[in-house]
Design a protein around this nucleic acid. Sequence first.
DNA 1: CTGGATCCAACTTGATACTG
DNA 2: CAGTATCAAGTTGGATCCAG
Lengths: 134, 134
Amino acid sequence: MNKATGKVKGRRAILIGGVPMDMDNCPVRDVMDHIGGKWNSLMILMLADGPLRFSELRRLIPDISQRMLTQTLRDLQRDGYLSRTVYPTQPPSVEYGLTHLGRSFLAVLRLFVDWSVENHEAIRKARAEFDAPV
Amino acid sequence: MNKATGKVKGRRAILIGGVPMDMDNCPVRDVMDHIGGKWNSLMILMLADGPLRFSELRRLIPDISQRMLTQTLRDLQRDGYLSRTVYPTQPPSVEYGLTHLGRSFLAVLRLFVDWSVENHEAIRKARAEFDAPV
DNA sequence: CTGGATCCAACTTGATACTG
DNA sequence: CAGTATCAAGTTGGATCCAG
């Protein structure tokens, strides 16, 4: 997907378990395209326990660049996962927190996280076996 | 992530809800990197009702290129989600089906799919509101 | 039929410098 | 403090041709 234009490349309708799925406007792809980024899910997890400020997030996630932090937060806010509150202090401070939608998604995300942790070893094993020179 | 080398770029350890998470070897990112591709999840959904052959998958998913179909199937097989069975016919036919791990992941994936369908409208609405010229 | 190999355009991310 | 702008580099996915 092209995040700049919002346009997607030609997808048509296909059947999933007999249910027609419009590939040009697929909810699953739409959600996945927007939370599948490198930092998006992590951001939601970081905010699970309460709102944090821009600088706090940058400190908590040392590897993220300023640019990606800004972009990730704006994308998540745009899709309704995060709320953004500006406090008119000097200098200004901005706080980000999960919305109702964000907390709703957090539940699904946590299942995914749990599954990943539980099955990571099995995956690594399968991978090693596949890569084995035989 | 670099799929060729398997190397990841410098990620360190951060805290998620007080729990240290090794960013250089994060199970969640590892799983997400490998099933977050354009076709991977769709492939698992397509095989939910039983094994399918290469040519059947290509027919059922018209938009996928031969290259991506091959690559997606191999990636999923490598990670243990799919099994690959070759029938020594002439010409050869190959059947792909979900493994136990694949079916296990399917359950999580279905929750994600359901959530996406349920909340897609809310997301679209939030997006439109955010983009409103105001 | 089921792939492998190559080339290439688009998209994503990072580094760095600058601003209200 | 919380961003924006610009440039550089890496990855992904698609088109096409070839092979067992």
